[in-house]
Design a protein around this nucleic acid. Structure first.
Lengths: 178, 178
DNA sequence: GGAGTCAGTTTCGGTTTGCAACTGACTCCT
DNA sequence: AGGAGTCAGTTGCAAACCGAAACTGACTCC
């Protein structure tokens, strides 16, 4: 709690993305969460794995615990030492992390294949997708519309890029129906 | 290109999340992308909608175009003025944005209901989920494993929170099968 | 009882951010 | 055609932020 706690009040989140970013929208925070998801639980382990400055790590962890995304569970007393573990709220971020990771896999191949996530039960590489529970099928970004919520509706008023460059460019591995 | 272009080289992304964050891992960048997805295309419109400083916006947009996530399309000449539109690479970020938004919807309700995304074809609210293409079913975070890729495998070595607090706490609206 | 470890905190200088003002390059209106 | 207005983008500068190293406690181990 050394530095500041301005960030959480600075902008009244009219949008859920903004609200989310108020909590995890930070380079280090997302990386810390990735480590947490991979089972890294100790302060020192994260510090070593990420190469983050200790004050930064301490600050981010305390923000995350304040936000109830992470909880501290003592694993020894006397000098109280904690494991940092994900709460249900934190666990629920897995889709977001996965989506980010999947995008990196598709577009940031620097040559060597990165981490692949597979289904523990069958070993198949996983995919993450937007689905319509009613139609029971994947939904492409152009078929998404947003309803209400924003106090100041922008010209377009809808999610899904009215004028996005659809496919008329030379791009590697375009994701198909996106 | 005023400020710097250090960030892209600073850390050799052993992990796709890191690679992704090198490009979009920034408070403003994600918010800009959200606007782009909603069809906001003009510099001034984004500046007004986000309340971002113009130099910041100019810097972020030029990074995004450098990264080929966004493209500039002139809509007038003489004073050349551009529309900023998503490339296929940028459009492909929709899942990530949606996942982040969905999380905010679930956990950051400050009272008023936020933006709801629906299927344009049938009006049903959408969901975003990790799925196993083989088993053809949703996969919970605890059933995800990662394969290789990281040069320095952490103690746990796997995605999905070995010791996460599973459900033994008082939390609102826990996501069910998570 | 001295050395070592671990989780944090403090200090402090360099970097980044963002407000305000400024620069071009038009377009519009009269 | 000339002044007013608009828009994208720069520059200057103060404030906020970041992070390496050193420091503080509170142990544990030998």
């Amino acid at each position: 709690m050394t530095a500041l706690d301005v960030r959480s009040v600075e902008r009244q989140s009219a949008c859920s993305i903004q609200a989310t970013l108020d909590i995890v929208g930070d380079r280090w925070t997302l990386l810390i969460l990735r480590d947490l998801f991979r089972g890294v639980r100790r302060f020192s382990a994260m510090q070593h794995d990420l190469g983050i400055a200790r004050n930064m790590l301490a600050d981010r962890l305390s923000r995350l615990t304040d936000a109830d995304v992470v909880a501290k569970v003592p694993y020894q007393h006397r000098p109280v030492r904690y494991d940092y573990v994900l709460t249900p709220k934190g666990l629920d971020l897995s889709n977001s992390l996965l989506a980010l990771m999947a995008w990196g896999d598709r577009w940031c191949h620097d040559g060597d294949a990165p981490t692949v996530l597979v289904h523990a039960d069958c070993g198949t590489p996983l995919e993450i997708a937007t689905r319509c529970p009613a139609c029971d099928e994947p939904v492409s970004p152009t078929r998404i519309r947003s309803l209400a919520g924003h106090s100041d509706p922008p010209p377009g008023g809808e999610f899904a890029a009215a004028g996005a460059i659809q496919a008329n460019r030379q791009h590697p591995t375009n994701g198909g129906d996106l």
